[in-house]
Amino acid sequence: MMNYDFTDIDVNALVGKRIQKKRKELGYTGMQIAEKIGVSQQQFSRYERGMNKIDLSYLVLLANYLNTPIYWFFEDCFIPKSSSEHSRIDKCSNIIAEATPDVFSY
């Protein structure tokens, strides 16, 4: 069993940063993404800044639109307590990613 330190994790901020990273990487504006998932540009900005929790249904739409597996948005949320476990986590992540059915790949 892996041991994680969840005491100082701001999931909303980490997921928001990942959303912003992928959006910019693909060259989309916040307005374009907001329109695609059906929220205001201001609301989408709050998601990216971690001020508001993004609804899971919006995150699924976003993952589809950005052609990104949904688990990618959560990868920064898991911080192992020891660096020795880091390689085990990477191996587990790779195994999970390889075993994930195509239905979850966007």
Rank of each mutant, 00 (worst) to 15 (best):
M1P: 05
Y47A: 01
L56D: 05
R46H: 14
R49Q: 14
I33Q: 00
R46L: 12
P101Y: 09
F73V: 06
G38Y: 00
Y4R: 02
N67H: 12
Y4V: 13
K21G: 03
M31L: 15
Y65H: 13
T7Q: 12
T29V: 06
K22Y: 05
P80H: 01
R46P: 01
T7M: 03
K36C: 03
D10Q: 05
K36T: 09
M1A: 10
K91Y: 07
N3D: 15
N94E: 15
I33K: 01
N94G: 15
E35R: 07
F73D: 09
L66N: 06
T29Y: 10
T7S: 15
I70Q: 05
E75P: 00
I54R: 00
K22P: 00
K91P: 00
K81G: 00
L59P: 02
K53E: 02
K17A: 09
D5R: 10
C92Q: 11
E98A: 13
L66T: 03
E85V: 09
R18N: 11
P80A: 10
N3P: 00
G16C: 03
F6E: 08
F6H: 05
K17C: 06
L26V: 03
Y28I: 03
R18D: 05
A63H: 04
N3A: 04
F44Q: 10
S40D: 07
M1W: 01
K53H: 02
E35A: 13
D55P: 02
D90F: 04
F6I: 05
L66F: 11
N64T: 01
T68C: 13
K21A: 12
N94W: 04
E35Y: 06
I54T: 08
D8N: 14
Q42S: 15
M1K: 05
L66D: 08
I70W: 00
V11H: 03
K24W: 02
Y106C: 07
P80W: 00
G38A: 06
E85G: 09
P101S: 12
S87K: 13
G16M: 03
K21S: 12
E75T: 12
I33P: 02
Y106R: 10
A34L: 07
R23V: 08
S82E: 09
S40Y: 04
G16Y: 08
E98D: 13
E75C: 07
